[in-house]
């Protein structure tokens, strides 16, 4: 068991949801890990990559590689950013380039937070307590690129006081989609509202996910609709006592 893990908090958690990063660090420490935060970290490059700016994305990805090249484990509180690194860095660098090879070395060490707990640390019960009815939103990249589906649910079921209810549209996109959300606001907002209907039908008061960007989208839609729903990152729920 590695005693030490490095965390890549992602730019959105760093700038918008620092509490998610703090919660993740806390849960990891409680699980017995020494947590390291490398201050030179910034972003994975996904915003540029997904919008078609490969050159700019490549530069940012190169920076990520330089910062984390010698880390043993890099834990990420986002399925989407983790997948950018483990899947799409390979689309950025030509096969045989040093950065491609470095990505080959790095990719297996970059692990989404819930997967790190269930598959590396092998803990389902982190000793959390949270009172309330919760529904879990499958973020698309975690679900379809990383194949993360059961792990987060297993962790949630072990939380004392928490009741997990499935929504019918758990696997449907929240509508965020990065720059899609501002290029096509009506469509993005409409997708969020469809999701809201499905969430409301469960009677849950809190929506949990492993991606802060989805939660930002959903919270924005809930607030605009005046829906009495809260969004929480899985790390926040697991850090609750």
């Amino acid at each position: 068991m590695p005693a030490r893990v490095s965390i890549f908090v992602t730019c959105i958690v760093d700038q918008v949801f620092p509490r998610v990063g703090m919660a993740m660090a806390e849960v990891l420490e409680r699980a017995g890990y020494q947590v390291e935060f490398r201050e030179d970290q910034t972003c994975c490059g996904q915003p540029a990559f997904n919008t078609g700016y490969r050159e700019d994305a490549r530069k940012v990805a190169g920076h990520f590689i330089r910062v984390f090249r010698d880390a043993e484990f890099i834990v990420v509180p986002s399925g989407s950013c983790a997948s950018m690194i483990t899947h799409h860095f390979f689309d950025l660098f030509p096969k045989g380039s040093s950065q491609y090879e470095e990505t080959e070395y790095l990719a297996p060490r970059v692990i989404e937070f819930s997967r790190f707990l269930t598959e590396v640390a092998k803990v389902d019960d982190v000793g959390a307590r949270f009172e309330g009815i919760v529904t879990y939103h499958d973020s698309c990249h975690a679900l379809r690129e990383l194949r993360i589906k059961e792990g987060p649910r297993r962790l949630l079921r072990k939380v004392r006081g928490l009741e997990l209810r499935e929504m019918s549209a758990a696997e449907e996109c929240c509508g965020f989609g990065g720059t899609f959300s501002v290029k096509f606001p009506e469509v993005s907002g409409g997708m969020g509202r469809t999701k809201l209907d499905s969430i409301l039908a469960t009677g849950a008061s809190t929506v949990v996910s492993i991606d802060s960007s989805c939660l930002m989208q959903l919270q924005g839609v809930f607030s605009r609709a005046g829906a009495p729903l809260k969004t929480m990152h899985l790390a926040e729920v697991l850090a609750s006592r």
Partner: peptide, 18 residues
Amino acid sequence: KWGSVREVTLPARKSFRD
């Protein structure tokens, strides 16, 4: 554009790194 259909979440007053 974001705010046209949903509420904006402001950046945190103090970032994670701080």
